[in-house]
Design a protein around this nucleic acid. Structure first.
Lengths: 340, 340
DNA sequence: CTGAAAGCGCTTACAG
DNA sequence: CTGAAAGCGCTTACAG
C-alpha cells in the first residue's frame, strides 16, 4: 500500500503552489489563468489525484458527515427512516455513520461520544430513551434532529408522527366495526415518547362519553417474543365475555408480528376471534394471514424530512436555533384483519 | 459553538507537554510517573477533553472506519447483513459508513471514490455488479471483502452462500412433494453472481437423469413489481398441463413477496395451484398466507463473518493477501406453501 | 492571478 | 520518564 498522491505532488508536477491546487479543487476558478487551470486539470487527471478528506476536515472543521443513531436497526420502521436519511444526505454530499444502540442508553451515550470525537457535522437520533439531558446538551453545541421519539427536556428539533390521530383512527375504526371491547397492546413504555403518547391517547379516548359501555384495557408486554404475547393474548380473549366483539390494537410493528404468531399458535382466527390493527405498514402487512389493517406511518418521509432540517440548519449556530417539533400525519389502511 | 478543548489546552493546564498527554490518551503508561499520570487524569476529566479523531486519523493514517456499500438497503437481506457488520465492527471499535447504491454501478463507483477520499480503513461491498475491474483494483490497495455477491475478476475476499446447495434443496423438496413441473423465477441476471449461480444450478439439475420427464423452465422477471409478476405467474399456471403438479422457486426475497401478492390477485391458492419455495427466511415468511417454505441464508452471519475477515486483514498489506472465497451453507425451512 | 507561510490537532521518532 | 520539534495533507488570510 503505497501512499496516495498528495496535493504537494500535484503542485510540484504542475509547477504551481499547493494553494493554487487547493483553489482549483474547491472550484475557485474566478481569478485563475485559463492556462494554469488547464494545466492543473491535466496533471490531476494524469496523477489520479483525490484530495484527502481527513486533512480537509481537520482544516475546515467540517466533515460532511452525519451520525445516525438508531435504537433498533432490525426494526423495519428504523430501516425506512434510515433510507430517507441516507438518500437525502447522499443528495447533498453528506455521508452517514450508522450506529445501532439496541435500545441501550449506555450504548447510545458511547456512540454519541464516539461520533463527537469523529467530528460529525450533525446528529439524527432515534433515541433509546434515558439520555434526555445528554441529548439536550448535545443539541446546544451541535445540530441535532430527533426522529420518531422525542425527549422531555427542552425544545429539541424533532420529526415524529401524530400519535393522537393514529390511535383515534384505530379506535374509531374498531368501534365502527362493532367492537364493544378494546385493548391496546404496547411494549414497555421505558420513557419512549410514541408509546407514552399512544397509551395516553387511548386512555383519553376510553374515558370519553361515546365510549361509555365499551370495555377497554391497556396491556404492556415486557418482552416482545412469541411466548409472553401468546400468554397475554390467551388471557385477553378468554376473559372477554363472549358476546362482546373484541378489537385489539398493537402499538408497534414488531409487536403486531408477535400477535399474529401468537394467534396462530393459539388457533385463534382473525377477525373471527378478534379484530386487529397494527402500527406501521410493514412490507409483510398485506401478505400476512390475514392481511393486516394498519396505521401507516410515513417512515421514509420522517427520515428525509429530518435530514433536510438537519442539513438546512448546519449553517446556523445550534445554540440559538429554536427547536421545532414536527408531527407528520398517519393514515389508516384497511385490510382483512378488521373485515367483518 | 465554541471550539472544543484541544490537547494543547490540556497540556497547558496539566503543566506537561502535549506529547505526554498524547501518550496518556493512547494508554502508554508504562514509563510514566504515577504523579503525572494522576494529574493528567484529573485535568482531562475536569476539562472534559476528548481527542479529535480527525487529527488522529490524519497523523496515523488510520480512521477506524469501514465503508459498507449496499446494493439495496431496502432489502431485508441487506439489512441483516448490515447488522452483522455493524455489530462486529462496533465490538472492535470501528464505525461504519453506510452507502446505498440502489443497484446502480455508477452510484457504487461514486461511493467507492468518496469513501477512498474519507480514508476508510476497508470496504465491505455487496456490489451492484458492473464494477468488477474497479473493485479488483481497489482490493489491491485496500482490504476489501465482498458479501453475497462475488465478482468475476481476480481472487477477491468474499463471503457468500452455497447456492448450488440451496437450489438443490429446493428442487429436491419439490420433487419429493410430487411436482412434475418446475419453474425458477429470477430477477434480471445483471452479472449478479448468486443469480447466475442459482440459474446455473437449476439448469444443471434439470438436465440430470432423475429429472427426465419433469418439465422445467427458467423465467426472468425484468422488474420486481406486482403487475409483471402477475402476468408471468398467470401464463405459467395456465400453460401448465393440468395434471402436472407445479412447483415454483423464487430466487430472492423481494420476488417471493411479489409472487405471493400476484397469486392473491389472481385468486390462486398456494399450495393448491402450485407449490412455492422462496429464498431468504424473511421475518414475514412464517406469517404469510400461506406460510412460506424457504431456503434460509445465514444473513447475519454473512455480515459478521465478512467484518471479522476484514478486520483481521487490516494489519496485512492488501497487495499480497490471497483472496479467499467463503461459502456458508443454507438450509431448507418447511412451511405450508409446500405442504400438500 | 498566484505564492509563502501559518495552522487545524494530533503522534512519534529523537534527545536527554 | 518527559519535552521540543517535525510533520500528516490540506486551506486561507495576507501580500504582492
Amino acid at each position: 500500500m503505497k501512499k496516495p498522491t498528495a496535493i504537494r505532488d500535484v503542485a510540484l508536477a504542475a509547477g504551481v503552489s499547493t494553494a493554487t491546487i487547493s483553489r482549483y479543487m474547491n472550484g475557485k476558478f474566478h481569478k485563475m489563468g485559463a492556462d494554469t487551470r488547464l494545466r492543473i486539470e491535466k496533471t490531476i487527471k494524469s496523477m489520479g489525484y483525490m484530495p484527502n478528506d481527513v486533512a480537509r476536515s481537520l482544516r475546515s472543521t467540517k466533515s460532511n458527515t452525519i451520525a445516525v443513531i438508531l435504537s433498533d436497526i432490525l426494526n423495519p420502521y428504523s430501516i425506512a427512516i434510515l433510507q430517507g436519511i441516507e438518500e437525502t444526505c447522499a443528495e447533498f454530499g453528506y455521508t452517514i455513520f450508522v450506529c445501532n444502540s439496541k435500545e441501550s442508553s449506555a450504548k447510545e451515550k458511547e456512540f454519541i461520544e464516539m461520533m463527537m470525537a469523529k467530528r460529525v457535522d450533525g446528529f439524527v437520533i432515534n433515541t433509546s430513551g434515558g439520555n434526555d439531558e445528554l441529548i439536550a446538551g448535545l443539541a446546544h453545541e451541535m445540530p441535532v434532529v430527533l426522529v420518531g421519539r422525542k425527549i422531555s427536556t427542552g425544545m429539541i428539533n424533532s420529526v415524529a408522527v401524530n400519535n393522537v390521530q393514529g390511535v383515534s383512527l384505530a379506535v374509531g375504526h374498531l368501534l365502527a366495526r362493532g367492537c364493544s371491547a378494546l385493548a391496546l397492546l404496547s411494549p414497555r413504555i421505558d420513557h419512549v415518547s410514541p408509546r407514552i403518547e399512544r397509551v395516553e391517547a387511548f386512555r383519553a379516548l376510553a374515558s370519553q362519553e361515546e365510549m361509555q359501555g365499551i370495555a377497554s384495557g391497556i396491556h404492556i408486554i415486557d418482552k416482545i417474543a412469541v411466548e409472553p404475547v401468546t400468554e397475554m393474548l390467551g388471557n385477553l380473549i378468554r376473559q372477554n365475555r363472549s358476546p362482546a366483539r373484541m378489537g385489539i390494537i398493537a402499538a408497534n410493528g414488531m409487536l403486531s408480528l408477535a400477535v399474529l404468531k401468537a394467534a396462530k399458535s393459539l388457533d385463534y382466527e382473525i377477525p373471527r376471534d378478534f379484530l386487529f390493527i397494527g402500527f406501521d405498514d410493514t412490507e409483510w402487512a398485506s401478505v400476512a394471514n390475514p392481511s393486516l389493517t394498519v396505521i401507516a406511518q410515513p417512515t421514509y418521509e420522517i427520515g428525509a424530512t429530518a435530514a433536510k432540517r438537519l442539513l438546512a440548519g448546519l449553517g446556523q449556530d445550534a445554540e440559538h436555533s429554536q427547536g421545532e417539533s414536527l408531527e407528520l400525519p398517519v393514515k389508516l389502511i384497511m385490510r382483512n384483519s378488521t373485515l367483518i
